[in-house]
């Protein structure tokens, strides 16, 4: 499963409160993604475009179990690649169907605005402008199934195990 997109660069330890400030939980679902990175990169949500890729340093997504990964999906981020991704955040990426890879060394491989090609099935990340490559742990077949289904809830719905969704009820 290949994704190609324009890169936005972030540093180390980008935490869940930066991705999803807590006050957003009281906002309508369709507005919550407007507050992503409001503290560390105000205005970014107006610049990012569907399919763009986030490249970051160590321990991206440290902190809360809140659905911060979902807001990146709502911003239509194509993929997330980091030197390391917090494991709880990674679970949320899988479960909200956000392609995400931990690849040591990836942060220094990109400058903002360059183009990345990512394949979570093989774990490879390539900088299409410099040609440099790096590899992370590929997703297993089970995780790719969740991604293809569009997330864990979609998988449950497909299996007939959901009767209603939040605001859809």
């Amino acid at each position: 499963m290949e994704i190609t997109g324009r890169v936005w660069c972030f540093g180390d330890d980008v935490n869940t409160d930066l991705i999803q400030p807590m006050h957003t939980v009281f906002k309508p679902v369709e507005e919550q993604h407007r507050y992503v990175f409001e503290a560390n990169r105000p205005g970014w949500v107006n610049l990012v475009e569907p399919g763009d890729v986030i490249v970051a340093g160590r321990n991206f997504g440290t902190g809360s179990s809140r659905p911060a990964a979902k807001l990146l999906v709502d911003l239509r981020i194509g993929a997330l690649v980091c030197d390391s991704i917090n494991w709880l955040f990674f679970r949320n990426c899988v479960n909200f169907a956000l392609p995400a890879l931990s690849c040591h060394g990836v942060a220094r491989m990109f400058a903002e605005g360059q183009t990345a090609r990512i394949d979570v099935g093989t774990g490879s990340v390539q900088n299409l402008e410099t040609g440099s490559r790096v590899s992370g742990q590929p997703w297993t077949a089970e995780l790719l199934d969740i991604l293809r289904a569009g997330g864990l809830l979609e998988q449950l719905a497909r299996d007939g195990l959901l009767v209603g969704r939040g605001t859809d009820e």
């Binding site: 809360s64 679970r91 949320n92 479960n95 909200f96 864990l152 809830l153």
Partner: peptide, 24 residues
């Protein structure tokens, strides 16, 4: 909740997970 590792004080493997996963 991310602080679920708290339950390890009782020798329990306790882990925070996300909302869709909890439903799963």
């Amino acid at each position: 909740d991310s602080h679920t590792c708290s339950g390890g004080a009782l020798n329990c493997a306790a882990r925070g997970i996300g909302a869709p996963e909890l439903i799963y």
